Amino acid sequence: MNPPSRRLRLALVVTAVLLLAGGSLGYVLHARHRERPPGQQADASFDVSEPGLYFRDTTGGRIARQGGPGLPRVTGGPSCDRFHTAGDHALCLRKLPGVPARTEALVLDRHMREVRRVTVPGIPNRARVSPSGQVLSWTTFTTGDSYNTAAFSTRTAILDLRTGYLIKSIEQIPLTLGGARHHDSDVNYWGVTFAADDNRFYATVSTRGATHLVEGDLRAWSAKALRENAECPSLSPDGTRVAFKKKVSDDPRAPWRLYVLDLATMREHPLAEPHSVDDQAAWLDDTALAYALPGEDGRASDIWSTRADGTGEPALLVPGGSSPARVG
Results as ranks from 00 to 15, higher is better:
D81Q: 13
L91A: 05
A105Q: 04
F141A: 04
G133I: 01
R128Q: 11
G98Q: 13
Q134D: 14
P100E: 07
E114C: 04
S146N: 13
A127S: 12
E104K: 13
L108H: 05
Q134C: 03
G98N: 11
R113Q: 15
S137L: 05
L106H: 11
V120M: 14
P131H: 06
H111W: 11
V120E: 13
D145W: 11
F83L: 07
L91G: 07
D145V: 11
N125F: 15
V99D: 09
N148R: 12
A127P: 08
S137N: 06
T140S: 14
L136C: 04
D88H: 00
D145I: 10
C92D: 04
T103C: 09
R113H: 15
A105E: 07
A150W: 01
L91Q: 08
M112C: 14
R117T: 13
T119C: 02
F141M: 06
L96T: 10
T149Q: 10
S137W: 06
R94F: 09
V135E: 02
R110M: 05
D109S: 01
F141T: 04
G144A: 06
F83E: 06
S146M: 10
M112H: 10
Y147M: 11
R128S: 15
P121G: 02
I123L: 15
W138R: 07
R110Y: 00
R126Y: 15
D145Q: 10
S130N: 06
I123S: 08
T139E: 14
A105L: 12
F141S: 01
G98E: 12
L96A: 11
L93V: 07
R82G: 05
D81I: 08
H111G: 10
T85A: 14
T139H: 08
A86T: 02
L91P: 03
F83W: 14
R110H: 04
N148W: 03
L96E: 13
V107T: 08
